[in-house]
Nucleic acid binder design. Structure first.
Length: 621
DNA sequence: CTAGGGTTAG
């Protein structure tokens, strides 16, 4: 692009105007580079017209800078060029946009003062922008003070204020203000839905959603994503179906949320249906939709389709790459995950902390001790990434499963940040794997466990080495402290419907048939000499769980149901909320062989792909 | 050109 410097003297009025339009086009085009902005800046310095068209040009310059990666340049331009030339409320508006982007409280305050001084306080639009800018700079009280003294408040003022309260977790003030809105519109109601759900009160959000006089696609999106973020994916899918029956057209944002729900449920059929919907309705495969699709396929254990989507995307960004790396790592394709990472770095893309969670996860699942250690101690540093809790958890897991329990403990003791229970539990996992009871006891004390998972793990560990008195002791502690074991829950999707099974629950309509099937399999298994040490492993701590020792862990129920309700030979996909139980893992290997089925189970941390009696985790999880 | 909804980890 050629930018000719204009010498004002030699230029006719017409060509000046044309030149102005060209510059405005450039200023308003998103593809104009910062360098070009600077060239235009220089050109404008050579002019000194006081006409209205130059004002428009100057304002365009401000806006272009505000939208650029260096928004503060807008202020430099304003100070040097516009001090002695006319400017108006739009100039201030764009300066505010620049303040917002750079989160500059000083600039916002400065514009606020100018606004008051010049008698622009009655321009509500401008005042609203100032209000938003204060809130963005975490000065919620300043925003509220401004709100209270504004000569006029319109619906935008109210909505902004309510939204900022909601965002900061202050639903009391948000709701109080909502009640004062003279005529709430759809946006106001939606803000309230968003507020309640993002503060964890899904039922309040749902109530508002039902109450609101009308709903548009954004309202539906707020409600659906609220369900997803509050771990209610089933409700999210139900709402999505309801939305379709009410003839509200979903957009790509809706689909992102719904795909995320499918992922957490392992609902492959529904996920595929949405993928078809995406194609049929010609949605662009942007990075958002792309990541959501990759994640959905990954979490359903279908990596070839995840890779296929990755290849078809219009554009890649950090998220799409991270989604694929993590998917590969979770599904046990450790080498491919690392290849992907290396390629990304070779191509000059900067990994972030999420990338390294995936990389370390891959090393952990692949048992790549050296590579993982190098990435943790060297590569991350090279990219200027400070390890966070998740990285430590991965690293402890990697050391632990490699049998380096002492090193793992040392890593935790030397952490510059306080280890959380996830980190400690990673070490506990290593203790379980290598049957190190002493360290496990120490770790459990460290955790000051609030959840019961740690005690259960410890108790299982005692059981696995035959220390029954200790098993009993832990049971008593749990009872004494009122700690409940989190029930195991597994789900399977059959004919687009999610069936949930809770450990020991017999409420499923086909419960009897499921038991019959499991019994039949149990017979075959014992004929083949499958009993091994199950009595040891199955000894559990709660009375009611002894009943489940008969083969009614949630994953077994789900597998039994899958076997009797799908066509022979088809793949079973199951999602479990806890760690895979050892006995069930053994049984599933066996079942995959005698029933000639591929069985994919996603547990709390990773995937198990069973085929012909073998599991992809190599019995190492 | 001021107000509402989105993807990736654990």
């Amino acid at each position: 692009m050629n930018l000719h410097l204009v010498r004002p003297k030699n230029i006719s009025p017409t060509s000046l105007r044309n030149q102005g339009y060209n510059l405005i086009n450039l200023l308003q085009s998103p593809s104009t580079t910062t360098k070009q902005l600077k060239q235009i800046h220089v050109q404008l310095l050579l002019r000194n017209s006081r006409s209205h068209s130059i004002l428009y040009l100057h304002n365009s310059m401000l806006l272009a800078y505000a939208n650029s990666p260096t928004p503060n340049d807008a202020f430099a331009f304003f100070a040097t060029q516009m001090g002695h030339l006319p400017w108006d409320k739009y100039s201030l508006q764009f300066l505010l946009k620049a303040s917002s982007k750079s989160k500059s409280l000083i600039h916002a305050t400065h514009v606020h003062l100018m606004t008051i001084k010049l008698g622009f306080a009655s321009y509500t639009t401008l005042m609203n922008a100032i209000l938003c800018c204060y809130a963005l700079c975490d000065q919620l009280q300043d925003a509220r003070n401004l709100f209270d003294v504004m000569p006029h408040r319109d619906i935008v003022s109210f909505n902004s204020m309510i939204h900022k309260y909601a965002e900061s977790g202050n639903m009391d003030d948000a709701f109080h203000l909502f009640q004062q809105v003279p005529a709430p519109n759809v946006i106001t109601w939606t803000t309230l839905v968003f507020g309640f759900s993002s503060n964890g009160d899904l039922s309040a959000a749902r109530e508002v959603f039902e109450w609101m006089p009308e709903r548009d696609v954004v309202s539906w999106n707020a409600m659906i994503s609220g369900c997803v973020q509050n771990q209610e994916p089933v409700e999210a899918l139900q709402l999505f179906r309801l939305m379709l029956t009410q003839n509200v057209n979903p957009n790509s944002i809706t689909l992102c949320s719904v795909l995320s729900a499918c992922g957490s449920l392992g609902a492959l059929e529904t996920g595929k249906w949405i993928h078809v919907f995406v194609n049929k309705n010609r949605f662009r495969l942007n990075p958002f939709l792309g990541s959501a699709l990759i994640d959905m396929y990954s979490k359903c254990g279908v990596m070839d389709l995840a890779v296929e989507v990755f290849r078809c995307l219009e554009g890649q960004n950090l998220c799409t790459r991270n989604a694929l790396i993590n998917g590969l790592a979770m599904n046990g394709h450790a080498e491919q995950a690392l290849d992907m990472f290396n390629k990304m770095v070779d191509d000059g893309f900067r990994p972030d902390e999420v990338t390294f969670v995936g990389v370390l996860l891959a090393c952990s699942h692949g048992g790549f001790l050296e590579i993982g250690t190098r990435h943790f101690y060297t590569t991350m540093k090279e990219f200027g990434i400070t390890p966070v809790l998740e990285h430590y958890a991965c690293m402890v897991d990697l050391l632990g499963r490699s049998g380096l329990l002492m090193e793992a403990e040392k890593v935790i003791r030397n952490m510059p940040i306080t280890p959380d229970e996830v980190v400690w539990r990673a070490l506990l996992g290593g203790c379980r794997l290598h049957k190190n009871v002493d360290l496990a006891e120490k770790v459990v004390i460290e955790i000051e466990a609030r959840g019961s998972g740690d005690y259960v793990l410890l108790s299982n560990l005692y059981a696995s080495v035959g220390r029954w008195e200790d098993v009993e002791k832990v049971r008593k502690i749990m009872k004494h402290r009122g700690i409940k074991k989190r029930p195991g829950c597994s789900s399977i999707e059959v004919d687009n419907k999610i069936h949930e099974f809770i450990s020991g629950d017999n409420s499923h309509p086909r419960y009897a048939a499921i038991c019959e099937k499991l019994e039949e399999l149990g017979m075959k298994m014992s004929e083949d000499g499958f009993s091994a040490e199950t009595s040891v492993v199955l000894y559990d701590i709660e009375e009611e769980e002894k009943e489940q020792a008969l083969g009614h862990h949630s994953e077994k129920l789900a597998i039994g149901f899958g076997l009797i309700s799908t066509v022979p030979g088809s793949t079973l996909r199951i999602v479990k909320n806890l760690r895979f139980c050892i006995d069930c893992h053994n049984a599933t290997k066996f079942i995959s062989n005698i029933c000639n089925r591929e069985i994919v189970v996603r547990d709390r941390t990773r995937f198990h792909h069973f085929k012909d009696g073998i599991c992809s985790c190599r019995d190492y999880w």
